[in-house]
Every structure is written in C-alpha cells, then in structure tokens.
C-alpha cells in the first residue's frame, strides 16, 4: 500500500490539534503501535508549532503538510513534510542544537528539533531567510525489524 495526502491549513493555534489528529489518522492506516503513533504526533506538533510561533510570529500564514506512506519488503515508511512560507532560519545547525531558542521569554524549551530527531528515524530541515522553512521527517513502522 502506497498512499499520500496533502493538507493546507492556516497558522492558527487550534490547527496544531487538528494537524496532529489528521496526520495521526493518516498514519493509522498502517497498523502501528500507540507509541509509534504518539511519537509521530509529537513530532508533528513540534514542527507545526514552530511554523505558527516562529515562522509566522503573530501574523497569519499558511502551513503545508504532506504525508507519504510507502512499503518496501513488507515494512512501512511514513514521510511527513511540514512547510511554511514564514521568516526562515538564519543558521539551521545552531537552531537545531538542544536548548537553543530565540524565544526564551515565551516559555519555549528549545527542544523542538531534538524531540523531532529522537522520535522520528530521520529529520531534515531546509530553510531560507525570508522565504520559509521545510521540515522533512520519516519514521519506519514495525520497529523490531528496523534494528536488525
């Protein structure tokens, strides 16, 4: 089974819960465990929150979420792409460091990218200042076999 979905939502805070649920419902076509699903939803939350809070600050913008499920040798891989056309990141390596945050007063922990990295199997961040940010994450489902 290969499948995809493309989703577009405005950068409203209520849409964080919707994005989690929508990606969760899409991922749930593969018979995954609660933990795998919760990992995926948490990573989606972090990326979408970043687009809302950092990418668009208080301005309204559009967030694009693309998901892909692909199957190879009976193993599923879910790829999730979360993209904004917001302000972009100046130095990605610095931004991805644990505890680094540009909004310390906002109760931001600076752990968003670290969470995405540890809950997913791969994380790739592309960003251009003034143009936007694109986060690509993948997770393999059926964990016992991914450690073979």
């Amino acid at each position: 089974m290969n499948n995809y979905m493309k989703l577009e939502i405005p950068s409203k805070t209520t849409n964080e819960a919707f994005a989690r649920a929508a990606v969760g419902a899409f991922a749930a076509q593969v018979d995954l465990t609660i933990e795998e699903l919760s990992d995926i939803k948490t990573a989606v939350s972090e990326a979408v929150t970043n687009s809302i809070i950092h990418g668009y600050k208080d301005a309204s913008g559009v967030i694009f979420i693309n998901c892909n499920i692909s199957c190879k040798d009976d193993k599923y891989t879910i790829e999730i792409v979360i993209e904004d056309k917001g302000k972009g990141i100046e130095d990605i390596d610095v931004a991805m460091q644990p505890l680094y945050t540009t909004s310390p007063n906002d109760e931001r922990s600076g752990m968003g990218f670290t969470v995405m990295q540890s809950f997913m199997d791969s994380l790739d961040v592309n960003s251009v200042l003034g143009e936007g940010t694109k986060v690509v994450m993948t997770k393999r489902i059926g964990a016992e076999n991914t450690y073979d």
Binding site: M1, N2, N3, A17, F18, R20, A21, G24, A25, A28, Q29, V30, D31, C71
Partner: peptide, 25 residues
C-alpha cells in the same frame, strides 16, 4: 483528550476493516 482525538478514535473504532485494511495495491 482533545475533541479532535476523540473524533478520530471513534472513527477508527467504527470501521477497523477499512481504516486498517492494507488491501490496496
């Protein structure tokens, strides 16, 4: 839980055959 999650959970429970079917392709 969030209303969004509840809606999704009820949906999945309604039609396990279709939501979890891995029949296509």
């Amino acid at each position: 839980i969030t209303p969004q999650e509840l809606s999704t959970a009820m949906e999945a429970a309604r039609s396990p055959e279709s939501l979890y079917a891995q029949t296509d392709d």
